[in-house]
Design a protein around this nucleic acid. Sequence first.
DNA 1: GATGAATGAGCGTTCATTCAT
DNA 2: GATGAATGAACGCTCATTCAT
Lengths: 205, 205, 205, 205
Amino acid sequence: MVGSKQVPSSIKNRALVEKRRQEMIRGAVSLFRDKGFHKTTTREIAKASGFSIGTLYEYIRTKEDVLFLVCDSIYEQVNERMKEVVDTSVPDGAPLEEAVRSYFRLMDDLQEEVIVLYQEVKALPKEAKDYILEKEQEMVAMLEELLACSLPGASRGKISVIANNVFVEGQMWGFRRWILQRSFTLEEYIDHQVSLLLEGVATYR
Amino acid sequence: MVGSKQVPSSIKNRALVEKRRQEMIRGAVSLFRDKGFHKTTTREIAKASGFSIGTLYEYIRTKEDVLFLVCDSIYEQVNERMKEVVDTSVPDGAPLEEAVRSYFRLMDDLQEEVIVLYQEVKALPKEAKDYILEKEQEMVAMLEELLACSLPGASRGKISVIANNVFVEGQMWGFRRWILQRSFTLEEYIDHQVSLLLEGVATYR
Amino acid sequence: MVGSKQVPSSIKNRALVEKRRQEMIRGAVSLFRDKGFHKTTTREIAKASGFSIGTLYEYIRTKEDVLFLVCDSIYEQVNERMKEVVDTSVPDGAPLEEAVRSYFRLMDDLQEEVIVLYQEVKALPKEAKDYILEKEQEMVAMLEELLACSLPGASRGKISVIANNVFVEGQMWGFRRWILQRSFTLEEYIDHQVSLLLEGVATYR
Amino acid sequence: MVGSKQVPSSIKNRALVEKRRQEMIRGAVSLFRDKGFHKTTTREIAKASGFSIGTLYEYIRTKEDVLFLVCDSIYEQVNERMKEVVDTSVPDGAPLEEAVRSYFRLMDDLQEEVIVLYQEVKALPKEAKDYILEKEQEMVAMLEELLACSLPGASRGKISVIANNVFVEGQMWGFRRWILQRSFTLEEYIDHQVSLLLEGVATYR
DNA sequence: GATGAATGAGCGTTCATTCAT
DNA sequence: GATGAATGAACGCTCATTCAT
């Protein structure tokens, strides 16, 4: 149930709230990606969601609530799918490499959403922002756990930097798509990143 | 002369235009970093710049012009200082490592500006955005050139990915400061990144 | 049957209409006194009345109907109780003084309602307002009748002014309570008003 | 300078602020009297004041500020003119009667304003309301002072009740005009009230 | 060249009312 | 008879921009 704790609705039927919010999120994501949060009007969100402005406000309190719902939902998706990736990797002792490849493919899949997250989280009110950043930290923590298993010799600090690098390189495929996706297919990009992660530039010196 | 081509002014005295725009940029950068472009009003920009709203509009046409001027000026600074870094590295055959370290320190130094760039470029109108992204490409190209010299064995594709990685890792120190700068000093961060760049995780497996 | 003539309901069962409207009035009076008619929403009225917004609208046509019902009911109460006062005074030839004292006590008792009346009647649509003001006139007329009996020497004009004075002084105990009720008990206030009514300031000159 | 302390304006020119606010007050008073504060829109206020909605908001912060300005200005007028009345009465030892007559005439003169005051003060936000009620108290205090001089034999309590009576009877001429002004000329009304004040109903028993 | 008062399109939000279930 | 989700007109307010002085 997306954001039900943080964003109260005046509609009583919980299932309906869930349904309408999904519609709202779907509508809002494209708008936010295309025009950004600030240039998107609430009327546009309502229209894209398939209901009237009045109805929109039965399910949220403020425009920022829509942004929160969108961000929350994206992280929920990303976290869930990352959990699958990590869970099939860690116990199997499956190699680091495969997990990282899965993560990059996931970021490709959720590209649109990740871009929104990247560009608009900062527009959230303080408290909501903290909540979302906490969720982001969970994701980085998952990567750290994965790395810690595969790289027993690495310090916590090193692990942390690597996790942040991988995290951002995954997102980079989306937010720098205008340059990266012009030059590489997804698999080429992943091959490059994995080789750099494993060996650095040592091979080319 | 900042943005003089792209942003006409109704004032004839070029030196004055330059001076006023510098004041405007200085004022706007902090505002944009703190509240974002959209939540900053033109009156606030005028006030922070030390002149009236009427005067502000003698030196720009639209609010977006201010953003453009700010972004342009930041890239100008970054490019100029990167040029120094690269120029003292490439001809000397100075090692890759030192150049990269210099770049990271530069990103630390211009943190505030880089964050603005990162968060607000997307708010620029299409044409202006393209112009700015072009300048960004110049920067990445400088990194590529540097890397190409030091890593003669690497393919153009690999070079490009590495350049983008380094470019973003430098900015990451700023835009993920709430996590990175809590855990590392700048030099620790740089040490980690340089070691990962050179050797990857090979050492820890 | 409150306002049944003026305010049609879509519900057939008259007893039920009566019951629901009583609930509605009880709920609305406090709301109107605390926040005023305009700042009270129909949803709040429905909630305070113990039924849903849909049900509320089965018993009224517009929000103003609620105000009318409230005002009508208050006058009904006031008139009824004033009738008792007057009826026990006039035939008995009971002294003016006692009747006036009873009236003041009544105004104290119905304070909350009188305040609402005082502040919100003007928000009624023209026709409803006229209807209510007519009822108010009945009350003043009762006072006039009472006064006429006790003051045979007074002209109609004088009687009318006195009636209006007494009428408003009674309400004043409620609508200027923040000053009067801080300085006087009800009985002190009544004593003062009665002595002034009977002798004016003649005694103190 | 009306309400300059309580209601900030973004316009710097103080004289202009004063001028525009006078225009605004003049426009708003009729509107408020005719339709009430809540049914008057800010656009109507702007139009009645002779400027645009944007300009209106250069001189106030919220719609309630207009109401405050209106109430404040009315009390200012009333207080000032009452001061004249009292000042020419008290030192001269001029008789109570004449002062009261002057007060009634003043209330007739400022009828429109007094009605607004009477009906809309309650819509003011708490703090502003307290401020205005304080000013009202000053007025009542003036009446008390006047009465105390003329009625040395009366207790403080009695004086206070008389002052409140006279105060409200003066306003009553306005807010019950639909009945009183149909039956009496102003001077008739005053004659009745003065005689009642001085002698009560003693004469008619 | 500088100023700041004026403008009004457009935004986020509310809430009385309706009507399908 | 009762419910509550849906509607959209209308509100208060903001702010980029203009232009007379």
